[in-house]
Design a protein around this nucleic acid. Structure first.
Length: 474
DNA sequence: ATGTCC
């Protein structure tokens, strides 16, 4: 164990090395189960590297906060490491509004209502995009959307074709799509443009630029007081179905090959096997769905802003970044297959994999806080290479949903949202009871998490985003 | 996370 740096340690587990990027205090708060899970994951054959970010906590089969790397040649793919919300991620849009335009609490309420009118948040809700063909979205990602949903000022279609979005289209063998039953197709089609529940949200925020990185902030188009829109959502029922149908084939292959660990929920197969390949293909269809889904929600928020603030209101895309996926990457000459579960890529300035508009500065890496706390726009540091340019994806859950409901009162939650004050963070729920398990008390302190990421020299803060209003599902 | 156990 390395004790020189309080923000990094290498742990020599029976099955292999685990790298942990977290302050001592956060590491000690993680608990034994987290290490047990790492030891299971490290038993998957041919694994080259595994790490935790400071928000690491127990998930199904694998911890949230995991980066796990294989070589592309002898690689394995694991539906458990990717997780069931395939393609879940963050999207940030920059408006031409200033926070003073939203100073009036009644106006923030109107905006939240206008967003809710266009983006259903309740269970079983239908989205308002039935004119879009699901098949086009699954096959072609953002490029499968009708042109009216991709206005130039919003996501530039010309030039380098949607490169402000990390991956506007994931290519794969589309025959795999036939394996998903028709009922799921219908459900997923209805769900286009819907938010989903749990930790998913749409938040309206005000930007504060970090002085030390003002040059980068300005080149990204960020200004102090500027209003940003942050969206956190995934692939809804489609990703879940991919996990279920394709995952069960992966289990069969795993058993046939005599593979497995003490955790039956940890599922994996060789990338080269039929089941592994099939999962990897369908996973990409879910990535296409998730990116398009966030895009459509941002489009709906843009429409809501035009209703409240007038036709000149704009929402230009800053970035879209996933935190649950696996995919091919390269490091020098090495061809790799990298899994990120609750971790996100943060490439530094000059890295060739940055999309063209961010080649020089590094791309925005998006870290949401919990409800009522700040979110951060980060940029990768060059030293992040030792963690395959992975950083955490949020504050990380501190206690279970049930434990939070036992511990936290509605009044405490309301006070952390400053309910009843002129500067209240307006939320779409009249009764906070329904989303009590998403209160800040359910999560680790995002500022400590950011401190760990910065001090471990994985990434730097470019801007802090303070919440003004939030839309949550249930 | 998820039409969360039709």
């Amino acid at each position: 164990m390395n004790t020189n740096n309080p923000y990094y340690r290498r742990i020599d587990l029976p099955a292999g090395d685990l790298h942990v990027f977290a302050h001592d205090k956060l590491f000690h708060a993680m608990g034994a189960k987290v290490l047990e899970m790492a030891n299971n994951n490290l038993q998957i054959p041919n694994i080259r590297y595994m790490s935790y970010t400071p928000d690491a906590h127990v998930g199904v089969g694998t911890c949230i906060g995991t980066t796990a790397v294989w070589g592309a040649e002898d690689g394995f793919v694991s539906p458990s490491i990717v997780g069931s919300d395939i393609g879940c991620g963050m999207r940030v849009h920059l408006t031409n509004l200033h926070e003073r335009d939203l100073r009036d609490v009644k106006l923030r309420r109107k905006l939240v209502k206008a967003i809710e009118k266009r983006i259903p948040v309740e269970n079983h809700a239908r989205g308002y995009f039935s004119d879009i063909r699901l098949e086009d979205v699954l096959r072609e990602g953002l490029h499968g959307l009708p042109g009216k949903y991709v206005p130039d000022a919003y996501t530039p279609r010309k030039a380098t074709s949607l490169t402000h979005v990390e991956s506007s289209r994931f290519h794969y063998d589309e025959d795999a799509l036939n394996r998903i039953p028709e009922t799921v197709w219908h459900r997923a089609h209805r769900q286009l443009g819907t938010l989903g529940g749990g930790n998913h949200f749409i938040e309206v925020q005000a930007i504060s630029v970090n002085e030390a990185n003002r040059r980068i902030a300005e080149s990204w188009g960020l200004q102090d007081g500027q209003v940003a829109v942050m969206i956190h959502s995934g692939s809804r029922a489609w990703g879940g179905a991919v996990n279920q149908y394709s995952g069960s084939e992966v289990v069969k292959t795993m058993h046939r090959l005599g593979l497995g660990t003490s955790d039956p929920k940890l599922v994996f197969a060789p990338l080269a096997s039929e089941a592994g390949l099939n999962y990897a293909n369908l996973m990409k269809s879910a990535l296409n769905f998730a990116v398009a889904n966030r895009h459509l929600m941002a489009f709906a928020v843009r429409d809501a802003c035009k209703e409240i603030f007038g036709a000149q209101a704009e929402l230009r895309t800053l970035y879209d970044l996933m935190h649950n996926y696996a995919g091919e990457e390269s490091r020098g000459e090495e061809a790799l297959f990298v899994h990120r579960k609750g971790t996100t890529k943060a490439l530094p300035a000059g890295h060739p994999d940055n999309p063209e508009p961010y080649r020089e500065t590094g791309h925005p890496a998006l870290i949401p806080g919990s409800m009522g706390t700040a979110s951060y726009l980060m940029v990768g540091a060059p030293e992040g290479e030792r963690n395959y340019h992975s950083i955490c994806h949020g504050a990380g859950r501190l206690r279970s949903r049930n434990a939070t409901k036992q511990l936290v009162t509605v009044d405490e939650f309301a006070s952390s949202l400053r309910i009843g004050r002129e500067d209240e963070i307006v939320v779409n729920h009249k009764g906070l009871e329904a989303i009590l398990d998403e209160s800040p008390q359910a999560y680790k302190d995002v500022d400590q998490i950011i401190d760990s990421v910065v001090s471990a020299r994985l990434a730097d803060v470019v801007a802090k985003c303070r919440p003004l209003a939030a839309v949550k599902g249930v």
